[in-house]
Design a protein around this nucleic acid. Structure first.
Lengths: 130, 130
DNA sequence: ATTTGACTTTGAGCGCGCTCAAAGTCCTAG
DNA sequence: CTAGGACTTTGAGCGCGCTCAAAGTCAAAT
């Protein structure tokens, strides 16, 4: 029925974590294989993954980076910096700032395009509705 | 040379059109093959494409739909409506309005995600700069 | 004891939107 | 006459981000 936490290693099962994060279990395994996790995910019974709070927080950030269009390879680069430890905060900052700029540029283009589409919509509203 | 509307000299070559539109010639041929054009593109010398103003305007709209993330298949559906002629303006309007809603939803998510990333950026700025 | 079901791994497959390769045609310049 | 270059077609290939199939393990429930 419900696979909840066991005594060994607190944390969510992969399906519970997936549900909590709004992704599929497939995607969680894929992110891990792709080298996006900071540390190996904990295991219970020496096989089932256990997602801890830190994992969930990290994946939450990953989903935000993905939602804003950052490619997997860039996320991996960022993860590597974080994994490497303190001392490269400037690099992480640069990476995130570059991404931020890319997103803003993208947002601007979408807005411009949407305006044109809105104009088209207005024309059709005139035609069908007037 | 001045009276015939299908004059060979009328219209841009595919490379000129591509440049004007900010896409590649490959993409223009692809759009055509994908059934996105309203009418067959004119030909000069019975082989080379000639893009007329109406073609350019149409592709400009296509690029705006693409820039806002509309899938090729939806654009094709829209093109089919337009190609079919007058009488289905309500359908076209519905299609565009549905797309508009999708874009707004997407924009909202991107903005939310970007805010979280901005927070992260602020933290790094503190760390590296303080 | 057996069945169920959630998990595991590896590698393959998919849908999308281009992007390119190959082979051929045609026009123009030298 | 020849060479170059822009074009043509068809079909294949690619990069991305998942998504899934297959075969196996394990623990709990019947």
């Amino acid at each position: 029925m419900s696979t909840v936490t066991t005594d060994e290693g607190t944390g969510l099962s992969i399906s519970a974590a997936a549900e909590a994060l709004g992704v599929t279990a497939h995607t969680l395994r894929y992110y891990e294989r792709a080298g996006l996790m900071l540390t190996p995910v904990d295991r219970a019974h020496s096989s089932h993954r256990r997602y801890r709070e830190a994992d969930l927080r990290w994946v939450t950030l990953l989903t935000k980076l993905r939602a804003t269009g950052m490619p997997i390879r860039d996320i991996r680069a960022y993860a590597e910096l974080v994994r490497f430890g303190e001392g490269n905060e400037a690099g992480r900052l640069a990476l995130l700032e570059a991404h931020r700029e890319a997103v803003l540029t993208q947002l601007a283009e979408v807005r411009r395009s949407l305006e044109a589409i809105d104009t088209k919509i207005a024309v059709y509203r005139e035609k069908t509705h007037a």
